[in-house]
């Protein structure tokens, strides 16, 4: 998936630093205590340029929200180099929502890569174990804020997502979407107040796949201000829609039809003996 997105974004490369950096989900592994470890990779439109060079400064922040409510602040996770690609892993003990933000810069380019999704840890008790406590995200960080959906645990195609861009919305040159199956990025319009509404289209391939199959869709904002370029991505892990393909009228008609059929059958054949 990640490489697919990379190839479509390849023509966005300019200079020595990559134009697009985003987070992709790697494997999940379950520990014997039931907790889950999720692996993440940092990808770019030019993987050669996003290797673990010492001068590439990256910080990873995350917070897990479980049933008890918001944890206080963000935690830091160490980025390691695995196969030449930046990588991190986060362990989750209970059912929780993860908000992951990676911040880095290269030359005059400032990158923010974000991802939100649910993790289902099954450890019997205990809190998540952050590697390092950290307070808030850096001040003035360009980032997307996704309004949480009350309806769905998973992000889905066909749902409308409301984003707010934290930065200077007026300086945003473009907002685009990169997704599998679309050769060119889709341009979106950001409102002056930073609001963005995005509804990912249904994907027949996803519909045919498992309900847990995801498609990475990356939202990219390109902002130029004060001689710097801010490249902010948000990775949506889209599942197929759970409700868009439901046809209630068809179902109700079938339900009523079967009921009438069964009633007829019962009256004619099963209410015996039919003496009176």
């Amino acid at each position: 998936m990640a490489s697919a997105v990379s190839s479509w974004a390849a023509d966005l490369v300019s200079g020595d630093c990559p134009d697009v950096v985003w987070i992709t989900c790697g494997e999940q592994s379950r520990r014997t205590d039931g907790s889950i470890t999720q692996h993440y990779w940092l990808r770019s439109n030019s993987e050669n340029r996003l290797q673990c060079f010492p001068d590439l400064q990256w910080e990873a922040y995350y917070r897990l929200t479980d049933g008890d409510g918001l944890e206080e602040g963000y935690s830091r996770a160490p980025l390691t180099c695995s196969g030449g690609v930046p990588h991190l892993e986060i362990n989750c003990r209970t059912n929780a929502r993860l908000e992951l933000t990676l911040v880095g810069h290269c030359g005059g380019k400032h990158y923010t890569a974000q991802l939100q999704h649910a993790l289902f840890g099954k450890a019997s008790a205990g809190k998540h174990a952050p590697s390092e406590r950290f307070g808030e995200l850096p001040a003035g960080l360009r980032r997307w804020n996704l309004k949480p959906s009350r309806r769905n645990t998973y992000q889905q195609t066909g749902d409308t997502y409301h984003f707010i861009y934290h930065g200077n919305a007026g300086s945003v040159e473009s907002v685009s979407v990169l997704e599998k199956g679309r050769r060119l990025p889709e341009d979106l319009s950001l409102a002056r107040d930073g609001n963005l509404v995005y509804t990912p289209a249904h994907d027949p391939h996803l519909d045919r796949s498992s309900p847990y199959e995801v498609k990475e869709t990356v939202l990219l904002a390109r902002e130029a201000a004060e001689g710097r370029e801010y490249l902010t991505t948000f990775t949506l892990l889209l599942h197929r829609s759970y409700s868009a393909h439901l046809k209630r009228l068809h179902g109700c008609l079938l339900f009523a039809g079967m009921a009438v059929l069964a009633a007829g059958f019962t009256v004619i054949f099963k209410r015996r003996p039919w003496y009176r």
């Binding site: 046809k247 179902g251 009523a256 039809g257 079967m258 059929l261």
Partner: peptide, 27 residues
């Protein structure tokens, strides 16, 4: 009570489910 047209399996499952529920209701 809806039919799920996501794919063939979901459609068949939802048809079975709704049809059985309709029959069972009468039963």
């Amino acid at each position: 009570l809806a039919l799920d047209f996501t794919n063939t399996v979901t459609l068949v499952f939802s048809i079975l489910s709704v049809a059985i529920a309709g029959g069972m209701l009468v039963g």
